[in-house]
């Protein structure tokens, strides 16, 4: 069985080191927060100027001055701090943020990330903080379905979509397999409901099986 979005989020959460400072991208990566152990000591960063972000706000907790990067109302945890935008992005660029988790249109064998534009001529370009996060965080984890709706793999030898960052992705979490991007190639860490042979056939590029396979 391939993984549900919740199961993918649970697996990503498991791989985040205790005590890490982590930025969760908009959309699916936000779900990772639901699976972090309360005692993990993981601190969530949101690029609009906060460390120690808590769960989504509901009811009377909703405060228009307290939102996440997706502009949704959130809560603050004990030990939280606020800072301005230049400081928030200095935290990324300066190599202080341990992990960032983002979605992707494509990831290349060399760890290039494409997640901001499909290059369609009528699309309005919008990048937000994705390029800063991609090159700033010590580790970039990608969460995505491995195959697009038309069946084409999103893990590719070279990205055909415009890049967000070069050689920045270290891990790729998908519904059918988890991959580690390493100097000698893309290693299959774990598979879910698919054989390694079928995986290699469908992805259509060389993959390094895990040593324990």
């Amino acid at each position: 069985m391939s993984l549900s979005r919740e199961q993918m989020a649970e697996i990503v959460a498991r791989d985040i080191p205790d005590g890490a400072y982590v930025n969760l991208g908009i959309g699916q990566p936000t779900m990772v927060a639901d699976f972090l152990r309360p005692d993990s000591g993981v601190v969530l960063h949101t690029e609009n100027g906060m460390l120690g972000m808590g769960r989504p706000a509901t009811g009377d907790e909703i405060d228009p001055d307290l939102t996440n990067a997706g502009k949704q109302p959130v809560t603050e945890l004990p030990g939280a701090s606020y800072f301005h935008h230049a400081d928030s992005f200095a935290m990324m660029r300066g190599g202080h943020l341990d992990v960032c988790i983002m979605g992707a249109f494509q990831v290349s064998a060399g760890g290039d990330l494409a997640n901001w534009s499909t290059g369609a001529p009528d699309a309005i370009p919008a990048v937000g903080g994705a390029m800063d996060l991609a090159i700033g965080a010590k580790q970039v984890f990608v969460m995505m379905s491995l195959f697009a709706k038309d069946g084409r793999p999103k893990l590719v030898p070279e990205c055909t979509y415009p890049l967000t960052g070069r050689g920045c992705v270290s891990r790729v979490y998908t519904d059918v397999a988890t991959f580690a991007v390493e100097p000698d190639g893309v290693r299959v860490v774990e598979t879910f409901g698919i054989s390694i042979d079928e995986l290699i056939t469908r992805v259509g590029m060389p993959l390094v099986p895990s040593s324990f396979d």
């Binding site: 690029e47 301005h84 935008h85 230049a86 928030s88 992005f89 200095a90 990324m92 660029r93 290039d112 990048v127 937000g128 903080g129 994705a130 390029m131 800063d132 090159i135 700033g136 415009p162 890049l163 967000t164 960052g165 070069r166």
Partner: peptide, 27 residues
Amino acid sequence: PQGNLAERLRAAGAGIGAFFSPTGVGT
């Protein structure tokens, strides 16, 4: 890019003529 936007504003306020940023390389 959002971080370059913030830093370019910061540079203006701090009297910095220009700066080198790693954001956007290869894009």
